[in-house]
Design a protein around this nucleic acid. Structure first.
Length: 512
RNA sequence: GACUCGAUAGCUCAGCUGGUAGAGCAUCACACUUUUAAUGUGAGGGUCCUGGGUUCGAGCCCCAGUCGAGUCACCA
């Protein structure tokens, strides 16, 4: 399929050919050794000028200002941008001025990758720059890059803003929008910080199956696939909870996994079909203990990323400093609605919900009604990190019944910026009770709930061998990353968010 | 899934009452040896998302669709 080239693409292909005609390889095989970076130069040149008399650096050409026999340009490497100064008679010492007049001025374009050698100096206007002595073409770029300019006041002009193009062509987004790159670096710092916290506690990072014969550990619709050799249905995991618990049975007292999970459900700025959760299980602990751990861990992450416990998210300043506020679910509802529902039965709850303008229907049981009231009246108002504890048993088939509150389980969620960021229980380790809860789920499934859990006989067998009392946690890494990077959409913390295929793509696999 | 908004040059966007498509940056040509949103002069560049319809005539109006964003629903 021939694609029609734009004027600028034709220019670049012609320049590519001319470069080759001059005997220059536009994609050289030999290594271009570098000994510094844009960031390093800017940070350290003023203090130690002697180290920057002979530098070698490579990057992408991002702007050019040609003034006859001398030019300024900017190159961008993985650490940032730096200005370079190119003088005709210094990069072309003899009579032949081709490298400057032809290659640099005519055949190179914004977006090309070059290597330069030279020395660092400060211009008359005070900008730390590289005085170029040698210039080498490292990669010719064949497509025009969107030009993003920032003026002296910091205003961005002609940005690359169309969300569709930014997500589909993330590589371009990353090149021209530096704040995008910063967000992803922060995301990695977040997981690094969390991982080192957990390792320092002595917990073991593990890997468990993504392809599962039975999906479990959460209430969600799965992606289904097929294994040819085994001729069997497999599901992409919706959670790894039941596997990590098997490992606790097996004698690992603290295990965790950063897990890509997959849920075949709606998409929104808070939901992507594949997303990342960190799940942690620690034996001989309960949910109270786990709350302390979550506070400690997330506070540390905020400090590692921002140097402070305070993080600006939209219009809110969120302070992760311990201790966080704790409400029981009943307490939160009473706090925000003034109604004490703790003693209410199902019909009283339904009337209460209606009086609070919460939409309900007759299929909702007690637990669902409570959850609905909480979601409508409380969750969105919880901006500062807050723990909500003690959920109705109906909604939590894997959580242990509360030690002294009838009808509730030992469960908490942390809410922050109006959204759930984690979910944790004292894990149910009574195999008889667990089987009964699964059977309730099966009943829900038979009645048409396509998100009801399935019964995992091997998991039951494992806890019949005895799982120690265990605290478990699932923390949404994408949601936490959104908060820590002040991102409005999950797509801004996923390199390649899920999208429908582009219409121009070849349709080899477009069967429905 | 419902509703709202959007799609025009490589990018960001205008486009009047329906009458042969516009700007800035980018590109091309020329000038310019410390510029920085470089500057000056000139030029080129379009499947107006797709397909129908109305009309003498559609970027614009109508219908259907595609893709995206937002809100809601779903996501316990």
């Amino acid at each position: 399929m021939e694609r029609k080239l734009s004027e600028q693409e034709i220019n670049r292909r012609e320049a590519l050919q001319e470069i080759k005609n001059l005997g220059i390889d536009p994609y050289p095989a030999e290594t271009f050794e570098i000994n510094t970076s844009a960031k390093d130069i800017k940070a350290n040149y003023e203090r130690n000028k002697t180290d920057y008399k002979s530098i070698s650096i490579a990057g992408r050409l991002m702007s050019r200002r040609i003034m006859g026999k001398a030019s300024f340009a900017e190159i961008q490497d993985s650490t940032g941008r730096i200005q370079i100064y190119v003088n005709r008679d210094e990069i072309c010492e003899g009579e032949d001025k081709t490298l400057y007049n032809k290659v640099f001025k005519k055949l190179l374009d914004i977006g090309d990758i070059i290597g330069i050698k030279g020395f660092v100096f400060t211009t008359q206007v005070g900008e730390i720059s590289i005085h170029v002595k040698e210039l080498k073409v490292l990669t010719k770029s064949l497509r025009p890059l969107p030009i993003v300019k920032t003026d002296a006041d910091g205003n961005v002009h002609d940005g690359f803003k169309d969300p569709e193009q930014r997500y589909r062509q993330r590589y371009v987004d990353l090149i021209v929008n530096p704040e995008v790159k910063d967000a992803f670096i922060k995301r990695t710092q977040l997981t690094n910080s969390m991982r080192s916290f957990l390792n320092n506690k002595g917990y073991l990072e593990v890997e468990t199956p993504i392809l599962q014969p039975l999906y479990g550990g959460a209430a969600a619709r799965p992606f289904k696939t097929h294994h040819n050799t085994l001729d069997m249905t497999l599901y992409l995991r919706i959670a790894n909870e039941l596997y990590l618990k098997r490992l606790v049975v097996g004698g690992f007292d603290g295990v965790y996994e950063f897990a890509k999970d997959f849920r075949n459900e709606g998409m929104s700025r808070f939901h992507n079909p594949e997303f990342t959760q960190m799940e942690l299980y620690v034996a001989y602990k309960d949910y109270e203990w786990m709350m302390d751990l979550v506070e400690e861990m997330v506070e540390k992450i905020a400090i590692d990323l921002h140097g402070t416990t305070k993080v600006q998210v939209g219009e809110n300043t969120i302070d992760f400093q311990r201790p966080w506020k704790r409400y029981s679910m009943y307490g939160a509802i009473e706090e925000f609605t003034g109604v004490d529902i703790s003693e209410m039965g199902e019909s009283a709850l339904r009337d209460t919900a209606k009086s609070l303008n919460v939409e309900v229907d007759d299929t909702m049981g007690r637990g669902k009604l409570i959850d609905e009231i909480f979601g409508e009246c409380c969750e969105g108002k919880l901006i500062q990190p807050t723990f909500i504890t003690d959920y109705p048993v109906e909604m939590s088939p894997l959580a242990k019944k509360h030690k002294d509150k009838e009808g509730l389980v030992e469960r908490f969620e942390a809410i922050c910026n109006g959204k759930e960021i984690c979910n944790a229980f004292s894990e149910l380790n009574d195999p008889i009770d667990q089987r009964a809860r699964f059977e309730e789920q099966l009943e829900l499934g038979k009645r048409g709930d396509d998100e009801a859990m399935v019964l995992d006989e091997d998991f039951l067998r494992s806890i019949e061998h005895g799982m120690p009392p265990t605290a478990g946690l699932g923390i949404g890494i994408d949601r936490l990353a959104m908060i820590m990077t002040n991102s409005n959409s999950i797509q801004d913390v996923l390199f390649f968010p899920q999208m429908r295929p582009e219409k121009n793509q070849t349709e080899t696999d477009a069967e429905g």
